[in-house]
């Protein structure tokens, strides 16, 4: 019960992104779109998986409601992170959105094959980026029903 209340109040979003500039822009765009969002940042794939597994084990209220995942990351790349999330019974129900500069058809197809919930390209223009984050926030954190924090019994 408590977890649900926390989730409703403050959507938890995990951003997996190694570029500090993109992290800053994403933080600012979410702050504008929905100030209640708590954005956690992992700057490589290993850190992302460690964070997710720690939250899953502890069953904490900080388990992300949504994951934004870059593809090109140090240590463990985004495709591997995505595969690991979707192979893990405790994590696979967290919607995972690819957010990358790559528009390569091979990356898009591979993303969907690995069960990405959707694939978004980062626009270069700042206002377009802000609009994109606003629409992510509107669709995923207002309209979409997300699975609750607790693991399925």
């Amino acid at each position: 019960m408590n977890g649900i209340e926390v989730r409703d109040g403050h959507p938890q979003v995990l951003l997996v992104e190694d570029d500090p500039g993109d992290v800053r822009l994403t933080q600012e765009a979410f702050h504008q779109a929905n100030p209640s969002v708590q954005l956690h940042v992992a700057s490589d794939g290993v850190e992302a998986m460690a964070y997710l597994r720690q939250q899953a084990v502890q069953g904490t209220a900080l388990r992300p409601d949504l994951i934004l995942l870059d593809l090109n990351l140090p240590k463990m790349d985004g495709r591997q992170v995505l595969a690991s999330i979707k192979e893990d019974a405790g994590l696979k129900t967290i919607p995972t959105i690819i957010l990358t500069t790559s528009e390569a058809e091979a990356d898009i197809a591979k993303g969907y094959l690995l069960q990405a919930n959707c694939y978004l390209c980062k626009p270069v223009q700042l206002d377009a980026f802000e609009i994109l984050i606003k629409s992510v926030s509107d669709l995923w954190l207002s309209n979409a029903k997300l699975s609750q924090k607790r693991l399925v019994e």
Binding site: T93, N117, C118, A144
Partner: peptide, 20 residues
């Protein structure tokens, strides 16, 4: 349906998104 069981089951079955 807003039933939690339907939401979780759908994401387990790889629904890309769940809207009511």
């Amino acid at each position: 349906s807003e039933a939690e069981v339907d939401i979780v089951k759908s994401y387990q079955l790889q629904a890309n998104c769940y809207l009511t």
